[in-house]
């Protein structure tokens, strides 16, 4: 709360340090860019405070240099380990997230993105045609899909899949799960159970738990990341739908406030639209108009 209240004050203080009118506009633009990109009030305040301090230390006065510094600070905040742990056989990736954020599509793309043999597990047994959707991605990419009928126990599908992946010497097993809101206690408990089944069957697995976050998400993204992290231990975020108009600033808040690194970005519905996250490029894009 304190940082929030201090926010406007800091901004004003900073503005008075840089006397000319150009700078005042600069600070307003910074705030507008960050808030309008869904970075959120807290992380924006933090960024601005740091920018102010470093700008004073270095005696920076031009808008251009300030921009450089801002990109620097932002990129630093976002930098994290983007690699995926693929050192096991099979390496197990559990895909989680709220409804409609892009889990199944990302899995499809991962088959192309990752080296080696990839297998899918259709553990979303709940949503209409979720299994068929994953099977189509399997056909597209050549990945075998382990599935049961709709309504089957998700944990049972996962059990089958780990078994099959081991038997066949598959390099990577990716598990699709049903979308669920982080607020639904029962559904989150079911996900924890899925995780436990994997752990029991293969100690050390899952090696990655990836959370899909839709770039159009506002401040609720923070709660999504916090609660999924608490319940299933998220190792990285996949920021999806960055091909739209949203700049995905919520990712910055998640990296900063929840401490989960962004690992991948998704920029479309096609198989080739998945890329490793590049902190610097993301920061540059954020301040592109500055």
């Amino acid at each position: 709360h304190k940082s929030r209240q201090a926010f406007v004050g800091q901004l004003n203080a900073a503005v008075s340090e840089f006397r000319d009118a150009e700078d005042e506009e600069f600070w307003e633009r910074i705030e507008e860019i960050l808030i309008s990109s869904d970075v959120g009030v807290n992380t924006t305040a933090k960024l601005v405070a740091e920018l102010e301090q470093r700008a004073l230390e270095r005696n920076i006065t031009s808008g251009r240099e300030l921009r450089e510094l801002m990109v620097d600070i932002t990129a630093r905040m976002l930098e994290g380990d983007v690699s995926l742990d693929l050192s096991h056989r099979p390496s197990v990736i559990l895909m989680v997230g709220v409804n409609g954020t892009g889990k199944t599509t990302t899995i499809g793309k991962l088959a192309r993105y990752l080296p080696g043999e990839v297998m899918f597990a259709a553990a979303d047994t709940f949503r209409a045609a979720a299994i068929e959707q994953l099977q189509l991605w399997g056909e597209r990419t050549g990945a075998p899909v382990i599935a049961r009928e709709r309504g089957a126990d998700a944990a049972a599908v996962v059990y089958d899949a780990v078994d099959a992946a081991r038997r066949e010497g598959t390099d990577v097993l990716i598990i699709d799960t049903a979308g669920r809101l982080h607020t639904k206690v029962n559904l989150m408990a079911e996900l924890e159970k899925v995780r436990r089944v994997i752990e029991r069957q293969m100690p050390g697995a899952p090696h990655e738990v990836l959370l899909t976050v839709d770039a159009t998400t506002g401040q609720n993204g923070l709660r999504q990341a916090r609660l999924f992290k608490e319940s299933v231990g998220v190792t990285g975020v996949v920021l999806t739908k960055l091909d739209g108009t949203a700049r995905g600033g919520i990712a910055l808040a998640i990296a900063d406030e929840v401490g989960v690194p962004i690992k991948l970005i998704s920029v479309g519905e096609k198989v080739e639209d998945l890329h490793p996250f590049d902190a610097r490029q993301f920061a540059e894009a954020l301040f592109g108009e500055l």
Partner: peptide
């Protein structure tokens, strides 16, 4: 429209 939509809801809706 998903209720979690953030700041770009306006741009989206206008389009």
């Amino acid at each position: 429209l998903d209720v979690v939509t953030g700041q770009n809801a306006v741009e989206v809706a206008q389009a």
